[in-house]
């Protein structure tokens, strides 16, 4: 039987959003899709795949590459070899993908962010997205893919019928690697390097009294507040929140810079952020050269309007 096996990533009872990218790629590949998922009450739209194969195991057992070997054995036993095994490009996804490639001697292409149907090749990032390689497997047989989050979600197609449900049981649980517990990172002091969303303020905010209002906006946006050197120098914000060569180097998903002109030392500390949004009243501010989105506006005015919009 020809099909694509999608190994779902589930964490603490949640079906991760990035699984949709794996499902989307599956649609592009025109394959019958089989979603492999541990037993449990996960919130899934069961019309997105053809088959849901439920594994008789807890999620911590499921997301362990050593156990995945046995799970895959059982899947193959039951359904035959898949054409492709798709994982998310995440901590557990890459872990299992590479381990399966080693154990089952399969080709692997990771961090796939595009697929060219005509050429039959996958786009894979090299050198931090500066270059992409068009990769395909040499020869035939099952291959392994990890997909980049946000790359294929739009290709997900809802089918007219619900997925058939299958059960995978009788797997062997490895004694060589065991889950002990989940650990939440200590949050005694804010670690701006760990934040996905930073709201960063600079000299342009004028004076210390403005900080509180920015803090409020950050809370409303669920962002972490950070600052550039002058702000820290003046002790408007603690040193731990400083972005820049003399502070921390950050790479959040979104870096929203308000009233920061973009001194060299500051840029060095944030330029690798996925998305940089700059708000500055000076259209010549160097930060606009590095930003993906820019707003020429007074930081305080924009902040206040933003609050109104958020409240309303």
């Amino acid at each position: 039987m020809s099909y694509a096996l999608i190994v779902a990533e589930v964490r603490r009872g949640v079906f991760e959003e990035r699984n949709l990218d794996a499902i989307g790629l599956c649609s592009l590949l025109d394959k019958e899709s089989c979603l492999l998922i541990p037993e449990g009450a996960y919130d899934i739209n069961d019309k997105l795949v053809n088959v849901v194969a439920k594994v008789d195991a807890e999620e911590m057992v499921f997301l362990n590459p050593l156990n995945m070997v046995s799970i895959l054995d059982k899947v193959i036993e039951k359904r035959g070899k898949p054409d492709v095994i798709i994982f998310t490009h995440s901590s557990s996804g890459t872990e299992c993908a590479s381990y399966m490639a080693g154990r089952f001697d399969l080709p692997v292409i990771t961090d796939v962010s595009g697929f060219d149907k005509e050429g039959g090749f996958f786009m894979k990032s090299y050198y931090s997205d500066k270059i992409f390689g068009q990769f395909r497997q040499a020869g035939d047989g099952t291959y392994v893919i990890t997909v980049r989050s946000g790359s294929f979600k739009e290709f997900v197609v809802e089918k007219s019928v619900s997925a058939a449900v299958e059960t995978i049981s009788g797997i062997t649980i490895s004694e060589e690697r065991n889950f002990i517990e989940y650990v939440e990172e200590e949050t005694t002091e804010v670690d701006i390097t760990k934040a996905d969303f930073l709201l960063s303020v600079g000299r342009g905010i004028g004076n210390k009294d403005e900080i509180e209002d920015f803090m409020e906006l950050a809370d409303m946006l669920k962002a972490v507040l950070s600052g550039s050197r002058p702000v820290i120098d003046k002790m408007w914000l603690p040193k731990a929140r400083q972005v820049g060569t003399s502070g921390k180097t950050v790479k959040p998903k979104v870096y929203l810079a308000m009233g920061i002109s973009g001194a060299f030392q500051h840029i060095a500390g944030m330029k690798d952020s996925d998305c940089i949004i700059a708000v500055n009243k000076d259209p010549e501010a160097p930060i606009f050269q590095y930003a993906h989105f820019g707003v020429i506006a007074d930081a305080m005015k924009l902040r206040d309007k933003m609050k109104v919009v958020l409240k309303g």
Binding site: R229, D233, M235, K239, T245, S246, G247
Partner: peptide
């Protein structure tokens, strides 16, 4: 030029 000392003072 490349780093900040820990102490804060009038520069």
């Amino acid at each position: 030029m490349f780093f900040e000392v820990e102490t804060t003072y009038e520069r």
